[in-house]
C-alpha cells in the first residue's frame, strides 16, 4: 500500500517534469527573440529534465532496489552544464549580431562591444 503510494509519487514527479518541459517548449515558440528564449530553454527545460531524472532515480531505488550512480552523475552533469550552454549560445548570438526584440528597453553592452570587437579581431590576427 505505502509502496504503491511512494511509487505513485515518483510518477507524479515525472509528470511535473514533463509539464515543465512542455511549458518551456511553448516558450520556445511564443517568446519574441533568442535572448528571451534562452531563459525558457535554460531554466524551465533544465528543471523539467532534473525532475524527470530524479523521478527515474527514485523509481529504480524503490522498484528494483537499484541505486544507480550513473543516473546521479547524469543529474549532476545536466545541472552543471545547462547554464554554461545557455551563456555560450547567447554570447555567440550577440557576437554574430542577432537583434534584440523591439520591446527591449536597455542595452548596456552595445557601446562597450565596439571596443571589444576591435580587440578580439586583433587577437585573431596574431
Amino acid at each position: 500500500m505505502i509502496g504503491n503510494l511512494i511509487k505513485g509519487l515518483t510518477v507524479v514527479i515525472i509528470l511535473i517534469g514533463a509539464i515543465f518541459s512542455f511549458i518551456s517548449a511553448i516558450g520556445l515558440i511564443r517568446l519574441p527573440d533568442l535572448y528571451t528564449r534562452a531563459h525558457a530553454s535554460s531554466k524551465s527545460a533544465t528543471l523539467g529534465v532534473l525532475f524527470i531524472l530524479l523521478g527515474t532515480f527514485l523509481f529504480f531505488i524503490i522498484e528494483e532496489q537499484h541505486f544507480s550512480t550513473k543516473l546521479l552523475l547524469g543529474i549532476f552533469f545536466v545541472f552543471l552544464t545547462a547554464p554554461v550552454s545557455a551563456h555560450m549560445i547567447c554570447r555567440c548570438a550577440y557576437r554574430s549580431r542577432v537583434k534584440l526584440t523591439e520591446t527591449s528597453i536597455r542595452d548596456d553592452l552595445a557601446d562597450c562591444m565596439c571596443v571589444e570587437q576591435g580587440m578580439s579581431r586583433e587577437g585573431n590576427d596574431v
Binding site: F20, T46, L47
Partner: peptide, 21 residues
C-alpha cells in the same frame, strides 16, 4: 523555473527585456 513558467503562460506577453551591467 516557476517564475519563467509563469511569464511564458501569460495570456498576453508584455515583457520589457534588456541588457544591463
Amino acid at each position: 523555473g516557476i517564475v519563467v513558467a509563469k511569464q511564458i503562460l501569460q495570456p498576453r506577453l508584455n515583457l520589457t527585456p534588456g541588457i544591463f551591467m
